[in-house]
């Protein structure tokens, strides 16, 4: 777009025509004078065919002579083609929040292809770790895979994964294990939700960065986090710290949890993570179902909360998350 802008500035100063360039949907891309120009304000329009069936419209308030029109067409096509970006460059521009219409159009063609959904996977290394080898490894691992593009940003490495043929969690685990084994470095990985509009890519990027921070608070030992699986944690984290602390102190028995046996709390956490399924929780804890019931009874005696009941379980979950978020 920058080159086209320059070209149109030049038209204005050297030729003096009032010109504008519109995309195939008649959205204004560039104008020599009025940046709010509407397609219908121009009396004369000329179609410019580009590579890949793309079409632009050059609009003028004055009729253009054939030679002038042909010359302008040639200049616009050449400048447009000079503006070609690699898939990586397009992705970096979008991740930086640069959304001009031409860039978006090209990005859609090159990044999305037939896919209607994409996710971002963010890889964050420890501070001061050089991620060059990691990027090289990813480029080798996904060479020839049109659905995955890797780029390095200041915050970490971002993978753009188009379509839903890759299971994001499995892919993230595979990436982590491969990096661990080949480079002997550790990384944290977060996965965005699925998005269908490239305009949302900056949001998706922010989301993955936010989940890294949320992970430090709620899942310190976890290395792969999927945004879709931590909705409640995101909700709690969106409350300002001071407010969280206030809610916790005012509504929950702070001292009680401090005094509670670690084993008992762990048991309750496993039960919550098993969707209150006693059999599943007992299996995960390698204890008999009766032992789990005994612990639940003890927890009820200590707290007045019966985690076999949804409301009590929800109350405990919220209080526990709040506690985690302020300690």
């Amino acid at each position: 777009m920058k080159a086209l802008n320059e070209l149109f500035k030049h038209f204005n100063s050297s030729i003096g025509y009032s010109l504008a360039l519109f995309d195939e949907n008649k959205n204004l891309l560039i104008a020599t004078e009025n940046n709010d120009a509407k397609f219908l304000e121009y009396h004369f329009t000329y179609s410019i065919k580009l590579q890949g069936n793309d079409e632009l419209y050059l609009a003028s308030k004055d009729r253009l002579g054939l030679e002038v029109w042909k010359l302008l067409e040639l200049l616009i096509i050449q400048t447009y083609n000079q503006n070609s970006y690699s898939r990586e460059e397009l992705l970096i521009s979008l991740l930086k929040g640069q959304y001009d219409p031409l860039l978006l159009k090209r990005a859609k063609q090159q990044l999305m292809k037939a896919s209607d959904l994409y996710r971002l996977i963010l890889l964050k290394g420890e501070e001061n770790i050089d991620m060059t080898d990691t990027l090289q490894l990813l480029n080798v691992a996904f060479k020839g895979d049109q659905r995955v593009i890797s780029v390095e940003m200041d915050y970490g490495i971002v993978l753009f994964v188009a379509g839903d043929s890759h299971n994001p969690i499995a892919l993230a685990n595979q990436i982590r294990d491969t990096i661990n084994a080949e480079l002997l470095i550790d990384i944290k990985i977060t996965i965005s939700r699925g998005y269908d509009k490239l305009q949302d890519i900056y949001e998706a990027f922010k989301e993955t960065m936010e989940v890294i921070e949320i992970g430090k608070v709620f899942f310190p030992g976890e290395h792969v986090l999927n945004t879709e699986n931590i909705k409640l944690e995101r909700l709690i984290y969106s409350i300002p710290y001071k407010e969280r602390r206030k809610i916790y102190i005012e509504n929950f028995k702070k001292d009680l949890y401090d005094k509670m046996e670690e084993d008992l709390v762990y048991t309750m956490e496993v039960l919550l993570n098993s969707d209150l399924n006693l059999g599943e929780a007992a299996g995960k804890l390698y204890i008999h179902r009766n032992t789990l019931n005994y612990r639940l009874d003890k927890f009820y005696r200590d707290t007045g909360l019966d985690l076999r009941k949804f409301n009590d379980a929800m109350f405990f979950k919220l209080s526990w998350l709040l506690r985690k978020s302020i300690t």
Binding site: D177, A181, L184
Partner: peptide, 21 residues
């Protein structure tokens, strides 16, 4: 000591071979 200087090698569950190599 950094992992690369510990003289170890790791094998994981989710190993991935590079398909085009």
């Amino acid at each position: 000591v950094a992992p690369k200087d510990r003289d170890i090698a790791m094998v994981f569950q989710n190993y991935a071979l590079y398909p085009h190599m």
